[in-house]
Amino acid sequence: MAEIVFPLWRSISRGLSHHCPSCGAGRLYGRYLKIEPECAACGHRLAAYPADDGPAYLTILLVGHLIIAPLLVFPVVWETSPIIALPILLGGLTAVVLAGLPRIKGGWVGLMYALQVTDAKARLHTSDAAD
């Protein structure tokens, strides 16, 4: 069990820091959320790991539960005029989501690497494979 857990967390932490989950040296992204086709340092094929909707769902879940829900407890949110509160809150939440999404996507790719889930294996479990 210990031999599975260590590579799992190592791969996820490498992804969270925007590095290749295989070697930890190469860059994971070429642009904001565009994953490099392969690692420049070790040549590992990074585009093989599916990161479709999972990172977006996880980002929304975390932001909703860790930021929005506790924020609603403070009366200042309800007592302030919506004309003032909404732009401030929505701007702040947008910044948090845009800053967090690349990290969460990197961690997701690291998780897929550690679990050895590739696009080819992921297609085996979709409804299109049954048709």
Score class of each variant (00 low, 15 high):
Lys34Thr: 05
Pro7Thr: 04
Leu16Gln: 01
Arg45Asn: 12
Pro21Ser: 00
Leu72Tyr: 06
Ala47Ser: 07
Tyr57Ala: 07
Ile68Ala: 06
Leu72Gln: 09
Pro50Asn: 05
Arg27Lys: 14
Pro37Ile: 03
Gly24Val: 02
Arg45Gly: 06
Leu33Pro: 00
Leu62Ala: 10
Tyr57Glu: 02
Ser81Met: 10
Gly64Phe: 04
Val76Ile: 13
His19Leu: 09
Leu62Arg: 04
Arg27Gly: 12
Arg31Lys: 15
Ser22Thr: 02
Leu16His: 04
Gly15Glu: 04
Ile68Ser: 01
Phe6His: 03
Leu28Met: 09
Arg31Ala: 11
Ile67Thr: 09
Glu38Ala: 14
Leu62Asn: 04
Arg27Pro: 00
Ala51Trp: 03
Leu62Lys: 04
Ser13Lys: 12
Gly54Ser: 12
Ile4Gln: 07
Trp78Leu: 09
Glu3Tyr: 10
Val63Leu: 09
Ser81Tyr: 11
Phe6Ala: 06
Leu8Gly: 14
Pro50Tyr: 01
Cys23Asn: 04
Ala40Glu: 15
Ala41Arg: 11
Ala48His: 06
Ala41Gln: 09
Cys39Met: 14
Gly30Leu: 15
Pro82Ala: 06
Cys42Gly: 06
Leu16Ser: 02
Cys39Asn: 14
Leu28Arg: 07
Tyr49Lys: 02
Pro70Tyr: 14
Arg45Asp: 10
Gly26His: 12
Glu3Ser: 10
Pro7Phe: 03
Leu58Arg: 09
Ala41Met: 04
Arg10Asn: 14
Ile12Ala: 02
Gly26Asn: 12
Cys20Pro: 15
Phe74Val: 01
Cys20Met: 10
Leu46Asn: 03
Gly15Val: 05
Cys20Asn: 09
Arg45Glu: 11
Ala40Gly: 13
Cys42Asn: 05
Leu72Ile: 08
Pro75Tyr: 13
Ile35Val: 15
Tyr29Phe: 12
His19Asn: 03
Val5Trp: 12
Leu8Cys: 12
Ile35Tyr: 06
Ser11Asp: 06
Leu62Ile: 11
Glu3His: 12
Leu72Met: 12
Ala41Val: 10
Ala41Trp: 09
Ile67Tyr: 13
Asp52Tyr: 05
Tyr57Phe: 11
Phe6Glu: 07
Gly64Val: 08
Pro75Lys: 14
Ala56Glu: 03
Gly64Gln: 10
Val76Pro: 02
Ser22Gly: 02
Glu36Asn: 10
His65Glu: 01
Ala51Glu: 03
Val73Ser: 12
Lys34Leu: 02
Tyr32Ala: 12
Val77Met: 13
Asp53Cys: 09
Asp52Trp: 08
Gly26Leu: 13
Glu36Gln: 14
His65Lys: 04
Val73Trp: 15
Asp52Lys: 11
Leu61Ala: 15
Val77His: 08
Asp52Cys: 07
Pro21Cys: 00
Ala47Asp: 05
Ile12Asp: 03
Ile35Ser: 05
Ala69Ile: 15
His19Ile: 01
Ser81Ile: 11
Ser81Pro: 11
Ala48Trp: 02
Ser17Gly: 01
Leu62Met: 08
Arg14Thr: 00
Gly54Cys: 11
Val5His: 06
Ala51Tyr: 05
Pro37Gln: 04
Val5Pro: 01
Lys34Met: 00
Gly24Leu: 01
Ile60Leu: 15
Cys23Asp: 00
Leu66Met: 08
